[in-house]
Design a protein around this nucleic acid. Sequence first.
DNA 1: CAACAATGTCACATAACTGTCACATTTAAA
DNA 2: TTTAAATGTGACAGTTATGTGACATTGTTG
Lengths: 229, 229
Amino acid sequence: MSSRILVVEDEMPIRDMLVFALEQKGYYTLEAETYGEALDKITEPYPDLILLDWMLPGGSGIQLAKRLKQSEFTRDIPIIMLTARGEEEDKIRGLEVGADDYMTKPFSPKELLARIRAVMRRAAPTSVEEMIQVQGLKLDPVSHRVTANEDGLDMGPTEFKLLHFFMSHPERVYSREQLLDHVWGTNVYVEDRTVDVHIRRLRKAISAHGHDKMIQTVRGAGYRFSAKV
Amino acid sequence: MSSRILVVEDEMPIRDMLVFALEQKGYYTLEAETYGEALDKITEPYPDLILLDWMLPGGSGIQLAKRLKQSEFTRDIPIIMLTARGEEEDKIRGLEVGADDYMTKPFSPKELLARIRAVMRRAAPTSVEEMIQVQGLKLDPVSHRVTANEDGLDMGPTEFKLLHFFMSHPERVYSREQLLDHVWGTNVYVEDRTVDVHIRRLRKAISAHGHDKMIQTVRGAGYRFSAKV
DNA sequence: CAACAATGTCACATAACTGTCACATTTAAA
DNA sequence: TTTAAATGTGACAGTTATGTGACATTGTTG
């Protein structure tokens, strides 16, 4: 959920305002003042969106956008360009280059957030989320439900994600660290043993019809989800 | 697939640009400069979407939208209104009247096309306005009424739209942001938590016969409408 | 113009979830 | 069998998400 937004803007007061508004809303921000600095920040992991001041010294904002839209890896990063009132030519050039939206300064934080939401939704991949079933255990990512032989099961968000991951990758052992990466996300630091606790909670949640046996401990290696006993 | 789009815009350069961009993309276009001319074009077969300049001479853009949204036959034609920057009042009036989206001039063809797709996708399944019933709960989109086991229920416009959306898409979790997009509309920015409050109001409104349990909280994900407990 | 209804936001209350620990139990090797 | 390591398990305290009432604002209706 917490997306990363790169703010490329040379005027500090404006940049600060943007960063403040974004972080307020839970976005993770990156900042750059110049063309070069921006390029440095545009590497793995790529930001999810770029707010780009069109009037960078030397007009390099346009160049940056052009460059990004040409590279296969950065082509799909949405760009919202920030222009000053009356710079019509820039708008036109910007849109030619492929900016996804633009805003004229000054603008309200509300408008900014609305556009970010719109642009990111447009860019969001519409992954096909299908129902997963293994024996009597069904998990439906769309309705966010898990059932065991038609009985609804209750579990916390983390247990749901964990089960989702397991059911998507059955018959395979994952170490605690791997599970942390896949389920909790990278760059989150929690103890390895925390996985054990959630495994315990998940097992309890699906134990009603004996499905807890599907989550197997592989001593010294990790855990495995398997239909086989 | 070739949808028919009516462009109502009095300034020729802009109209030409729009028509060009649309035909480029394979849409079939109709053009109108004035209120009266537009009405002439809005007959069988009805256009699938209307791009409506809000600033038609005499402010008649708004009147046209209002008129269209009042007639049973044209109510469901999606309208994207085109406003000049800063005409905040118009935006607000436009959304009240029932415009489905708006764009501020000048805008990119890319954005325009994206919104057209979005609006049409959203409007497509709504074309048939049928009574929806889930267990004892009935919602009639035509008369704008909701009943629980024959008892009439009272609720605000937003709650009605919310319930309408939920009942049209049961068994599916929607995040607060998605609900904002679908119920409040794109381009409106309100706090995520506002959804919670309206959920609360809606639950209260339908709680008389225990129907409030149909709106379920999915912690960390959003809300879901479902007949199942 | 006054009374009323609807909206969006807050602040606070409540409920649910998290990560960690300490201790119990199991396992495998010595 | 003994022993050390690995895993299971219950409890708990902090954190976060959601529920809820109140309020200012705005538009609507009479």
